[in-house]
């Protein structure tokens, strides 16, 4: 049983993903030989220039895409398809515009596997609990088009958590927000993630971003990727103490990590705009 304890929560081994254009037959290599182990309760950020296959990794772990080659495992079992054990928060949130805040947060509970064994009262109570967690009390009956970007983001986060996944997959969840809102929500995300809880109780998280400081602020480890094809360039362990708050940005080590990551991706970032 000791082996099971040391087993990574998520394992990607030699993962390759090629896309073939349907008409031309042109083959694009999105990911080439990506290997990555992620432990229980770890918060991993993936950064890299656009086209490095960040989102592809997420889709593969979510089970929405299958790798062309390689192994993808969760708790030692291969990932065969999407499931509520791996919750995804999409870049533009993918909220249902015809559902209220409550309806969106309870979507998986009401119509999917996570709420199968619950009574309607239990589901409603759980929705109310997560409405409160993301501070949306009072907006339960509003529709997404009536909400600000920050509020939509909270709805998406609450919907993700309400389904009780043990792995969180977040695809640039703060990308659409203005800089000030981002900084506030980064700290809030860590609070909700359970920074103060012991590691075994935290959710294993894969967070995709193109914002280097965001990655350093949030992550236990930052995976830096290079593009065309997407490869793991380097992995940095961010051993800044938790819980973290705004003051950590002034820590000299914070700047050191950010510089280090920037150095790793700047050549390709410059190439991309040249």
């Amino acid at each position: 049983m000791n082996g099971a304890v040391n087993r990574p929560k998520l394992r990607l081994q030699g993962v390759t993903k090629a896309f073939v254009a349907p008409r031309t037959g042109h083959r694009t290599l999105a990911l080439a030989d990506v290997s990555l182990d992620i432990d229980q309760g770890e918060f991993v950020c993936i950064v890299g220039p656009s086209g490095c296959g960040k989102s592809t990794i997420l889709n593969i772990v979510a089970g929405l895409d299958a790798p062309t080659a390689g192994i993808v495992e969760k708790d030692g079992a291969p990932i065969a398809g999407p499931g509520p054990d791996r919750g995804v928060m999409f870049q533009d949130y993918a909220l249902y515009p015809w559902q209220t805040v409550q309806g969106n947060i309870g979507f998986g509970l009401n119509y999917g596997a996570p709420g199968k064994s619950m009574s309607q009262a239990e589901r409603d109570a759980r929705v109310a609990e997560f409405v409160k967690l993301v501070s949306l009390t009072g907006s339960e009956s509003k529709y997404p088009h009536q909400l600000s970007g920050g509020m939509r983001q909270r709805v998406a986060l609450a919907r993700l958590l309400a389904n009780g996944p043990d792995i969180l997959l977040l695809d640039e969840p703060l990308g659409a927000l203005d800089a000030q809102t981002r900084i506030i929500l980064q700290a809030e995300l860590l609070r909700i993630w359970g920074e103060t809880a012991p590691r075994e109780q935290r959710k294993t998280t894969v967070f995709i971003t193109h914002d280097i400081e965001e990655a350093v602020f949030l992550a236990d480890r930052v995976v830096v990727m290079s593009s065309h094809p997407g490869r793991v360039r380097d992995i940095l362990t961010i051993d800044l103490p938790r819980p973290r708050d705004e003051s950590i940005r002034a820590d000299p080590r914070f700047g050191h990590f950010a510089d280090e990551i920037w150095r790793l991706i700047r050549d390709q970032a410059l190439q991309a705009i040249a």
């Binding site: 979510a62 089970g63 929405l64 398809g81 999407p82 499931g83 509520p84 791996r86 919750g87 995804v88 999409f90 533009d92 993918a94 249902y96 979507f107 998986g108 119509y111 999917g112 596997a113 996570p114 919907r159 389904n163």
Partner: peptide, 11 residues
């Protein structure tokens, strides 16, 4: 994405 989201929620 709306369909993908539902699939990841076990719908």
């Amino acid at each position: 994405k709306l369909i993908a989201a539902a699939r990841t929620m076990g719908v």
